[in-house]
Simulated assay, not measured.
Amino acid sequence: MSTPILQVSGLRKTYGRGQNRFEALRGVSLDIGEGESLAIVGKSGSGKSTLMHLLALLDVPDSGRILLEGNDTAGLRGARLNRTRNKTFGFVFQQFFLTGKDSVVENVVLPLKIAGVGRRERRRRGLAALEQLDLADKAGNKALDLSGGQKQRVVIARALVNNPRIIFADEPTGNLDTATGSVVEDILFTLNREHGITLVIVTHDDDLAARCDRRVVIRDGILVEELAVTEARA
């Protein structure tokens, strides 16, 4: 069996001190296979977003280990951490985090700019990503002029521009109507199944979770349930 692309063991994370101390994660262990689609499900405050932030190396645990392709990430710092995150992960959040006055293509190529890719190559790859999302005709438009669904497709294009191994999506359809949300879901699962990109979705939406290969449930910072979707539907 191949090494999981992500392995975490005994993750603990606490915020605050004294009476305000809150244990967000309490010893979570989890393996994620390459090319898998995984839903992390839980109520608000359950710890699911904290887990995603740790998996994506956006935060560090108080204790426990995170292995990326079998390599311990604890030693990653500064520029090395940023390079690893930038080339390995793509991010799709409920909030679009687009710069409204910049053009669509300028928003898409931001990870490439951070990575030091030259202007001409940035534009080429940015336009290619927009073409993949049927948004090439909007490349020169201001981001603020787009609809909600178009903005989320721009966010997915930005997530794709660095050819990531893993896409993390935190409530990716939370700000969209049902029809538009379904389109965005279809795009994400097509990228997973046709391009082999590992997809990790944080959601409280059971219908969205049911589209994934596997679902894990977080409750009060503890992994309480882990099901293949076929088991969950039984």
Results as ranks from 00 to 15, higher is better:
residue 19 Q to K: 15
residue 209 A to H: 02
residue 22 F to G: 00
residue 172 P to A: 07
residue 17 R to C: 01
residue 127 L to M: 14
residue 153 R to I: 05
residue 117 V to E: 13
residue 21 R to I: 06
residue 2 S to Y: 03
residue 164 P to I: 06
residue 226 E to G: 12
residue 213 D to R: 05
residue 195 H to N: 15
residue 210 A to G: 08
residue 53 H to N: 15
residue 93 F to H: 12
residue 60 V to N: 05
residue 130 L to Y: 09
residue 163 N to D: 15
residue 82 N to L: 07
residue 21 R to M: 13
residue 17 R to I: 02
residue 140 G to L: 13
residue 65 R to A: 15
residue 127 L to Q: 02
residue 212 C to G: 09
residue 106 E to G: 03
residue 87 K to L: 09
residue 10 G to E: 15
residue 182 S to L: 12
residue 65 R to V: 14
residue 34 E to C: 01
residue 47 G to K: 08
residue 185 E to W: 07
residue 168 F to P: 10
residue 74 A to I: 08
residue 185 E to R: 15
residue 45 G to P: 04
residue 89 F to Y: 10
residue 188 L to N: 02
residue 156 I to F: 00
residue 6 L to E: 03
residue 122 R to H: 00
residue 85 R to F: 01
residue 185 E to N: 13
residue 87 K to H: 13
residue 14 T to V: 14
residue 21 R to P: 01
residue 94 Q to D: 10
residue 207 D to S: 14
residue 83 R to Y: 00
residue 173 T to S: 12
residue 174 G to W: 13
residue 168 F to N: 02
residue 67 L to Y: 06
residue 195 H to F: 15
residue 5 I to N: 08
residue 172 P to E: 05
residue 77 R to K: 14
residue 91 F to G: 00
residue 40 I to L: 12
residue 151 K to W: 08
residue 3 T to I: 15
residue 173 T to R: 11
residue 232 A to N: 02
residue 224 V to Y: 03
residue 66 I to H: 00
residue 95 Q to F: 15
residue 199 L to M: 06
residue 160 L to D: 04
residue 98 L to E: 04
residue 3 T to M: 14
residue 225 E to M: 10
residue 5 I to H: 01
residue 228 A to W: 14
residue 150 Q to F: 04
residue 114 I to G: 01
residue 196 G to E: 05
residue 218 I to F: 10
residue 18 G to A: 08
residue 157 A to M: 11
residue 46 S to K: 09
residue 3 T to A: 13
residue 217 V to I: 11
residue 110 L to S: 06
residue 38 L to F: 08
residue 171 E to M: 12
